[in-house]
């Protein structure tokens, strides 16, 4: 398939999936579009990195980092908690396929295969959580820096 078409499909679908998950978890409708943007941005970063040959962990981490940063920005603009943007934003990134395959393997009695898959789920989940933590750290540093600048404005 044409690469541009693939990019278009991935972008539109990740946007739609984030918005539709936001509908399911009852996000206030004035922030729905912002949820879509952060979902699409996170997924596109993941997709490009994944295609470029980086591993699952790195690509998930970078995608989530962007979702986290975007969430902070949207939270400032819309004056809402960050969670509103982060939860729909990571929906395309959560390890759905390995989780499903792990359950399937368990049901079919293939325990060794299931073990590997479950560890993959755990690693990806941890990578996503780390991405959020780093984004939060960055925003805290930024707000501290801006406070410092405002305080010592005249001396600088």
């Amino acid at each position: 398939m044409n690469i541009w078409l693939q990019i278009l499909i991935n972008f539109v679908f990740s946007f739609l999936s984030a918005i539709s998950f936001a509908l399911l978890i009852n996000v206030p409708h004035r922030v729905l579009l912002a949820c879509g943007w952060s979902g699409a941005a996170g997924w596109m970063v993941y997709w490009f990195l994944h295609r470029a040959g980086f591993g699952n962990m790195v690509s998930n981490f970078c995608g989530t980092l962007l979702v986290g940063i975007l969430g902070m920005i949207f939270a400032r603009i819309k004056k809402c908690p960050v969670t509103l943007f982060n939860i729909p934003g990571i929906v395309p990134l959560v390890p759905g396929v390995p989780a499903y395959l792990a359950i399937r393997a368990l049901v079919m009695g293939e325990f060794v295969k299931a073990e590997g898959l479950i560890i993959r789920v755990a690693i990806v989940t941890a990578a996503i959580a780390m991405g959020f933590m780093l984004a939060q750290l960055g925003s805290e540093l930024l707000s501290r820096a801006s406070k410092y600048c405002q305080k010592h404005w005249k001396r600088l």
Partner: peptide, 29 residues
């Protein structure tokens, strides 16, 4: 009374979510 989306909107949400995520996750189009 928490304001919430009516069921039909949630159904559309579930439909769009399932189909789009299937394409994204499997990457098989």
């Amino acid at each position: 009374m928490t304001p919430s989306f009516p069921l039909w909107i949630q159904l559309i949400g579930a439909a769009v979510l399932s189909s789009t995520l299937m394409v994204l996750f499997t990457g098989q189009y």
